[in-house]
């Protein structure tokens, strides 16, 4: 019996497959859209400001009368808050990952994992409120030098925000280490602690590195916590007690104001945006690659 390609059934099947495929292909158009929108507006920006001034200038004052377009203060602010977040999230996430995969009884795991997921679900604007109106006043009691807006408290909050993420990616990679490697370590008389730190962490290293990098990428892209609690002041500093502005919170500041379409102020947010996009893309690709590596290894 020959297949009739004009049968109603066949046409219907083809139409359905076609529309499902269009839904899947849409994701490519989203990426293309991001690249096009950021690229074209940033192109307009770089016609006025040289790439060299943008990347090496140390003053960022596009909204003032004398405009300077050096992105470094924003990059420094982003870096500072991200480093603080990672200092919190990496050890905490790693300890949680080891605990959950090696120590925790089944029941504890069943309770802890959903709670960690809830931590991710909290709207970031709520975290921002908490950083500004709870954590900063609290820290000021111990650190009198801390200004009302600072890099420290949003950094700490972001650290706890990304901890569940770091923990879950690390846990996956520690779990991926085959059982016989653990058994080998136990057979040599190692305790769980010794095998965790001397055998499992080295064995799962690329996965843990992936967790670290992807967590960092989240912290770099995080917006509301820093926009609320870090202040809106471009500041080329490594001092966590001072107010800073990040790439993301600059975009928020301009969007809140009234930068007319097509002006150079309007275009600066796309220049900051494309830099942010490229940085996070780089980290994500690297993290993804490291994660695949551990999958191939075992």
């Amino acid at each position: 019996m020959k297949k009739n390609i004009f049968s109603r059934r066949h046409i219907k099947e083809t139409l359905i497959e076609g529309s499902l495929m269009m839904a899947a292909t849409l994701s490519i158009f989203i990426t293309a859209g991001i690249v096009y929108v950021l690229g074209s507006e940033a192109y307009g920006f770089f016609k006025v400001v040289s790439l060299k001034e943008f990347l090496t200038g140390t003053e960022w004052t596009p909204l003032f009368a004398t405009r300077k377009f050096g992105i470094l203060p924003l990059v420094a602010g982003t870096l500072l808050t991200t480093v603080i977040a990672v200092i919190v999230a990496l050890p905490l996430g790693l300890i949680i990952a080891i605990y959950l995969s090696e120590y925790a009884p089944h029941k504890v795991r069943e309770v802890v994992k959903p709670v960690l997921e809830l931590l991710v679900a909290v709207p970031t604007v709520v975290y921002g409120y908490f950083a500004l109106l709870f954590l900063t006043p609290l820290l000021q009691k111990f650190l009198p030098d801390l200004s009302g807006f600072n890099a420290l408290s949003p950094g700490l909050i972001m650290g706890i925000m990304i901890t569940p993420y770091v923990a879950s990616v690390s846990e996956d990679s520690i779990k991926a280490v085959p059982m016989h490697i653990r058994e080998g370590s136990y057979a040599m008389g190692a305790t769980k602690l010794q095998s965790s730190f001397m055998v499992l962490i080295p064995a799962a290293f690329s996965g843990i590195a992936a967790a670290f990098i992807m967590g960092m990428s989240r912290a770099i892209g995080e917006t509301m916590v820093v926009a609320i609690a870090a202040g809106m002041m471009p500041n080329l500093t490594a001092n966590p007690f001072e107010p800073v502005q990040t790439l993301t919170s600059y975009i928020v500041q301009v969007s809140l104001g009234d930068a007319p379409h097509g002006t150079i102020e309007y275009k600066t947010i796309f220049a900051a945006g494309i830099l942010l996009f490229l940085i996070t893309l780089f980290f994500n690709i690297m993290g993804f690659w490291l994660r695949e590596k551990i999958r191939e290894k075992y």
């Binding site: 292909t25 989203i30 892209g221």
Partner: peptide, 24 residues
């Protein structure tokens, strides 16, 4: 390509989607 692309999109900061929506 679609798969890699979706993985990447999941990691794009939310504010970038805002810029996309603003332009588009």
């Amino acid at each position: 390509i679609i798969e890699i692309n979706i993985n990447n999109l999941a990691g794009v900061p939310s504010i970038i989607y805002g810029l996309l929506a603003l332009g588009l």
